[in-house]
Computed example of a mutant assay.
Amino acid sequence: MRFASLRLIALGATFALTSFARPAAAVVTFNQDLASGWTQGTGTSNGHFTVDTEANGVELGLRASLRFVGPITPSGNLYIAPVGSTPPGSALWNFEFSVNPGSLLGTYSVLTITGPGGVLSFNPQIIPDNTPLGGPLYQNSENLGFAFLGGPLNFNPNASGIYTFDLKLFSAQNQQLGDVSIQVNAVPEPSTWAMLILGFAGIGFMAYRRKVRPANLAA
């Protein structure tokens, strides 16, 4: 009995030390402002981000927005975007990211995009036109229709599809420091849906008329 009690005490002490040593869990919030602020580009405002906030000062954000209009209001981390294109073959929607490594040095990020046509992973920090803020924070607004993204993904802006964006931050020792993801469902606009419904109704009515007409002639 004494040895069993000692084992239980040892296990309890080990668990307590392990729990104390573990870092605080990440907090992922939805439809939020970035605490770091949104400074990339003009004409767009902060808000509607899915945000991972870490105790070490790391903040990662992702969102989808209507091109030249503004952010899309999500449901959780799900963003509904319209199918369609603007010249020269860009989607009607953008994805936007923000990476703030806080005071940590030597970090790097990986953005993985998964779509119907393929998967692409890259370090978004290497995009040449990231907002120059004179600090560790970097942000950008990108479109899957841009050649360096759309080519590897076989992206078609006029086709419906589900796209997953996953943004991770790593230390120089390859330890994961943060992770945030969103899903963008590209679907036909409501007007397109209405036209499709009317089209199907018209086809059904024509089929009904063809079926009824022979019956009337036979009578």
Rank of each mutant, 00 (worst) to 15 (best):
A35S: 14
S98E: 03
A25L: 11
T73S: 13
N46C: 04
A35H: 10
L66V: 09
V28C: 07
T73L: 07
N56S: 15
N94Y: 12
P71F: 05
T86A: 15
L62F: 10
T44H: 06
L78R: 10
A81G: 01
G102T: 07
A25H: 07
L111I: 00
F30C: 03
V83L: 12
V83Y: 14
S103H: 05
G102M: 05
H48D: 13
F30A: 08
A64V: 11
F95L: 08
V83H: 11
A55Y: 01
P87Y: 04
N100S: 13
S103N: 13
V99S: 09
A81I: 02
Y79A: 13
L111N: 01
S90D: 14
G43D: 04
P88W: 11
V99N: 04
G89T: 15
G37H: 06
L60M: 06
T86P: 04
T112E: 15
S109P: 03
N31W: 03
S65H: 07
V58D: 12
N77A: 15
P74T: 09
R67W: 07
G61A: 12
D33G: 01
V99F: 11
E59K: 00
G89L: 12
S109E: 09
F95V: 06
T86S: 15
L111H: 00
D52F: 09
L92Y: 11
V69N: 08
L34R: 03
F30H: 13
V28K: 08
E54A: 15
Q32E: 14
G106H: 06
G70F: 08
P87S: 15
G84Y: 14
N100E: 07
F49P: 04
G102Y: 05
L78N: 12
A91Q: 12
P71A: 12
S45C: 03
Q32F: 02
T29P: 09
A81W: 04
N56I: 10
E96H: 04
P71S: 08
N56P: 05
G89I: 11
L66P: 08
V110K: 08
A25E: 11
L34H: 11
A25T: 05
S65N: 14
L111M: 08
T44V: 05
E54D: 09
T50A: 13
E96N: 12
Y108M: 04
S75D: 11
G106L: 06
A24Y: 05
S45N: 13
A55G: 00
E59A: 00
G37P: 10
L60N: 02
R67S: 09
P71I: 03
V110M: 09
A64E: 14
L111Q: 01
A26G: 11
P101Q: 00
F49T: 01
A91L: 08
N46T: 06
P101D: 01
P87W: 10
D33C: 01
S98D: 14
E96W: 02
E96S: 12
G57P: 08
D52G: 11
V58R: 06
V99Q: 06
Y108V: 01
V28P: 04
S109A: 15
V110S: 09
W38F: 13
T73W: 05
